[in-house]
């Protein structure tokens, strides 16, 4: 069975041989190292068989040695399927558009979660983060890596003790810890 599968991948043609004793043409083919298969005799002068696409040049040589007439009655296999697909322009355009849409949509930021912070600071963080380009609907390639974002946020919002930025598919998860004593306006160790 592997024989047939392999031939489908490389492509094959169906030939119709007309002449007296058409089966002898296939015998001649076999002698010239041209394998053939699925040979059916339709009538006393007509036979149908299949040969590989790559053997067509050899077939021409065999044809010169015989008195039979050969007609191509069908072509099948992967090369012809590809040819047909390529000829269908709308299908190709549709496939490329679909790929582009999938690519674009999967590279958009769809959600930003902030956890562990007060509402006030949460809004501040979100506003700050928006300035870096991290907002809903923006492309992911416009945003810097989570590690640099983390550093930047910590630098720009002194109320935060620590913030973790994690990218998870198309969503960003921010998890922060506040400096609780900052509410007392004792700005000790502001740099840290």
């Amino acid at each position: 069975m592997f024989f047939y599968k392999k031939n489908w991948l490389t492509g094959y043609v169906t030939i119709k041989v007309i002449g007296p004793y058409p089966e002898r043409f296939f015998d001649l083919c076999a002698r010239y190292q041209v394998p053939s298969w699925d040979i059916i005799k339709k009538s006393s002068t007509v036979a149908i068989g299949k040969i590989k696409l790559s053997d067509l040049s050899k077939l021409r040589k065999v044809k010169k040695k015989s008195i039979h007439k050969i007609y191509f009655s069908g072509r099948s296999g992967l090369p012809f399927v590809i040819k047909k697909l390529v000829a269908q322009k709308p299908l190709l355009i549709g496939i490329t558009i679909a790929f582009i849409i999938i690519f674009m949509l999967s590279n958009i930021i769809w959600r930003i979660d902030v956890a562990g912070l007060d509402r006030e600071i949460k809004l501040k963080v979100l506003n700050q983060v928006e300035e870096y380009g991290l907002e809903k609907g923006n492309f992911q390639w416009n945003v810097e890596s989570p590690a640099t974002l983390q550093k930047k946020i910590l630098e720009d919002i002194p109320e935060l003790l620590w913030i973790g930025v994690k990218k998870n598919g198309s969503a960003f998860h921010l998890k922060g810890v506040e400096k609780l004593r900052l509410k007392n306006r004792k700005r000790v160790n502001q740099g840290i």
């Binding site: 076999a30 002698r31 053939s36 699925d38």
Partner: peptide
């Protein structure tokens, strides 16, 4: 109902 399924060399 004869069909030559394969003809390779000999």
């Amino acid at each position: 109902k004869f069909v030559l399924k394969m003809m390779i060399d000999k």
